[in-house]
Design a protein around this nucleic acid. Structure first.
Length: 744
RNA sequence: AGGCGCGUAGCUCAGUUGGUUAGAGCGCUACCUUGACACGGUAGAGGUCUGGGGUUCGAGUCCCCACGUGCCUACCA
């Protein structure tokens, strides 16, 4: 099959056929194929082959993601084995080392994909750090900065002390963990007896307290309004403030305010112009602002603080309390809210011209049906998230990734920030030396752009007219927000005004859709693959099934068929190899049906009655695939012939409509039941006497054979998207007119 | 704390807008080495559709409650 690129390049440059575009969710370069990938790719491949067979110009674009943190960690581990760390190498050498790593090992997962039969267009393989994609990333950054939608600022971010970088809200996984709620007495300044008791789960942060808040309406604290307290251990006077932050219903109704270590306190701090005292360093150790506790690791500091409070009689109580603890999704380290200067992307800010915010545009695209989700309820999940979204922290304190295209003037009187596509030679304002920001962008920043950057953006290309918007996105619910949401926001923003070639759009079945800026028209969210006991597969549990092992045991076709057959909407897939065993038997059944046919060919040829070529070997098969209305040359001889033909056509219809709605399970079981329960069990059995030339009727035998081959060949077409290997093998054998050489 | 889902045969799951005796695969039982296939064939056993209430001529399917279970989102110290 010629690739779409070849077809576009063949001179006509204007395909008059429907187009189907699918972007492969790029696996991490560091990744190894897991069952989730296999499910995802099987479903994509089924849809892609099905479209190709129906005459769509089909582009399935593969690639890999540079996966900032994951890849950097992997190479750092490698370095650690040599007794080195990245700082020993320096930035440039380290990044070169990562490139080396990727050149050597980065293609592993794509090689594994090939074994699944994924029929992607390898000629268009991309990597998210390719030069053209990197250029597009800078373009996007510069434009958004110019529009005021990317900004730099000092805010509380989620900080992973182990990875040493800020991470986004989505990279924090919350776990309800049994902990303690401590009540601490803060002495009121100028009084010997009065205390105000605050409640906290993180006592060590009190070292950075700059106020205590009570609710203005709280009668208990009326007499303390306007007073100060003496912060224990640090012996610093801090004010009692009135703020909504304090909920009279919770704890003691008084809350300590630590603007540098808590997002709520940070906001309260801004409202009351409180100082921000950062008491920790980037590794989670107490810094010089923590007085006597400086140098202690944060949880050691907690113990030390509690011990000292106890000795001073200031620990009023401790209760068991379930605390939702945020952990770094990558290394499970407890995340620290940290005050830090980072780059953010504004999610809810309207454009300068009053145009809707990124989040609002994305919501509208889904609400209006320009992007449709399957299963449908995912659109509600999506919209709910969009409505509660916060600005996205896009900078990471890493070395591997797209470096932020911002330069700072070193002249202390100037301090100009230059955001530019190319490295500026000098500060455009004062002519001083400029230095580039040391941070890189969140990995999802570049992957969010892929639907258009892989098609040539920012250049205007024919590719873009033909293939954008992509037709479908198939992915897991786990990256709905990480990736799908970001693609929608970026796509709607940067492709605004884009028009897909109208003839192609009509032919492809998207004529009714008005908005061609969306990155894809349909989203299919697939289920999670679990083990046979419905447990989530995880390395620690040791229940991870390696797809390569499974396919080596049962065959790729059987494994693919299992995943398709079990992909019913709304439920996770409990992958049970027993089921795969059953589908291996099915593959065997197909093989044996083929053997039966070739056995009859042999017999007929020996008798000189006919050859297989007469039935289907003459010339190339008709293009366009799943036959809807019968097979050419089929002879409606008898009741059973007419019956199998009507069943065949009904099944083909049913499969088509099942696949229209991504009901892989239904399509799979339809063809399974038809092939085994009807074609093999009944039709072949009924035909045996006629095939054998019953009553010496060779004409009837000949017609019988032709009909069998016809239905069988059609069934192979129905099966092909699901089981590409066995069907291709047999199909070629039929057209070559000789049995396949291999045995099962 | 909010949101989303699931609970149907021993096991894993179908059951699309409510409509005759609720289906499949695996497992189980009996028989069959029939010239494609024992990874096969034929026949069969097995379910008060988690529980309770409601709507309806009619509910596995719709509504409410309870229980069990899974996931996602979340700055109440």
């Amino acid at each position: 099959v010629p690739t779409p690129s070849a077809i576009l390049a063949d001179g006509t440059n204007a395909p008059r056929q429907p187009v189907f575009t699918l972007l492969l969710p790029p696996p991490n370069v560091t990744g190894r194929l897991h069952m989730g990938h296999m499910l995802n790719q099987t479903q994509m491949d089924i849809i892609v082959r099905w479209h190709r067979m129906r005459g769509f110009l089909t582009l399935w674009l593969p690639g890999t993601d540079h996966a900032g943190i994951a890849t950097q960690m992997m190479v750092e581990r490698q370095l650690a084995k040599e007794g080195k760390n990245r700082r020993d190498l320096g930035r440039e050498a380290f990044v070169e080392r990562v490139w080396e790593w990727r050149r050597e090992y980065g293609g592993a997962i794509l090689e594994q994909m090939k074994r699944l039969g994924a029929s992607v267009d390898w000629s268009r393989e991309y990597f998210t750090m390719d030069e053209n994609l990197s250029r597009a990333v800078r373009e996007v950054f510069v434009r958004l900065y110019g529009e005021g939608l990317i900004y730099r600022g000092k805010y509380i971010v989620n900080w992973c002390p182990r990875c040493g970088t800020a991470i986004s809200d989505l990279e924090v996984k919350h776990e309800e963990t049994p902990g303690k709620l401590y009540e601490i007495r803060y002495p009121v300044a100028g009084s010997k007896k009065d205390f105000i008791t605050v409640a906290t789960t993180r006592p060590e942060t009190m070292l950075g307290d700059t106020a205590v808040a009570v609710n203005a309406a709280d009668e208990r604290y009326k007499k303390l309004h306007g007073k100060k307290v003496l912060l224990p251990l640090m012996l610093r006077e801090i004010p009692i403030i009135l703020d909504e932050l304090a909920n009279p219903e919770f704890g003691t109704g008084a809350v300590k305010v630590t603007p540098a270590h808590d997002a709520n306190d940070f906001q309260a701090g801004l409202r009351h112009k409180l100082p921000q005292i950062d008491v920790m360093d980037e590794r989670g150790y107490m810094n010089e602002n923590a007085g006597a506790y400086a140098g202690l690791e944060r949880f050691e500091a907690r113990e030390a603080v509690l011990r000292d409070l106890r000795t001073q009689g200031l620990l009023a109580g401790e209760k068991d309390y379930v605390v939702p603890i945020g952990k770094c999704e990558r290394c499970r380290t407890i995340v620290e809210p940290r005050l830090s200067t980072q780059w953010f992307m504004a999610m809810t800010k309207a454009g300068r011209d009053g145009s809707p915010s990124l989040a609002q545009r994305a919501s509208e695209a889904v609400k209006s049906g320009e992007i449709r989700f399957t299963p449908e309820n995912n659109s509600r999940i999506f919209l709910q998230w969009m409505e509660n979204i916060y600005d996205w922290c896009v900078s990471r304190q890493l070395w591997w990734g797209h470096r932020i295209p911002a330069w700072y003037c070193g002249n202390s009187k100037c301090r100009e920030i230059v955001v530019a596509r190319e490295t500026p030679a000098k500060c455009p304002k004062c002519g001083g030396r400029v230095e580039q920001d040391t941070d890189v962008l969140d990995t999802w920043f570049s992957s969010g752009l892929l639907p258009f950057t892989t098609l040539g953006w920012p250049e205007k290309t024919r590719d873009e007219e033909v293939f954008y918007p992509t037709s479908l996105m198939i992915t897991g619910g786990d990256i709905l927000f990480f990736w799908v949401a970001r693609m929608i926001m970026f796509g709607c923003h940067f492709m605004q005004g884009h028009q897909q070639d109208s003839a192609i759009k009509r032919l492809s079945g998207f004529d009714g859709r008005k908005d061609d800026s969306v990155p894809f028209r349909e989203v299919y969210i697939h289920a999670l693959v679990r083990d046979a006991e419905r447990q989530k597969m995880s390395k620690t549990k040791g229940n991870v099934l390696d797809p390569i092992q499974v396919i080596e045991q049962y065959g790729t076709d059987a494994t693919r068929f299992t995943l398709a057959a079990m992909a019913s909407p709304g439920t996770d897939i409990a992958f049970n190899p027993k089921r795969t065993e059953g589908y291996r038997a099915f593959a065997n059944k197909i093989w044996n049906a083929a053997r039966f046919i070739f056995m009859n060919v042999d017999r007929a040829q020996q008798a000189g009655v006919w050859s297989l070529k007469e039935f289907c070997g003459a010339g190339a098969p008709a293009r366009g695939a799943v036959p809807r209305t019968g097979l050419s040359g089929f002879q409606h001889a008898t009741l059973e012939d007419r019956w199998i033909l009507s069943r065949f056509n009904a099944v083909a219809e049913e499969m088509n409509s099942a696949l229209e709605t991504y009901r892989f399970d239904e399509a799979a079981s339809r063809v399974y039941d038809f092939f085994w329960g009807e074609f093999c069990d009944w039709y072949l059995e009924l035909m045996k006497p006629r095939l054998a030339g019953e009553n010496g009727d060779q004409a009837a035998a000949r017609a019988a054979f032709g009909n069998i081959v016809g239905v069988f060949e059609g069934a192979l077409r129905l099966l092909h998207p699901f089981m590409p290997f066995i069907t291709e093998e047999i199909w070629h054998a039929i057209y070559d007119g000789k049995p396949p050489a291999k045995s099962i």
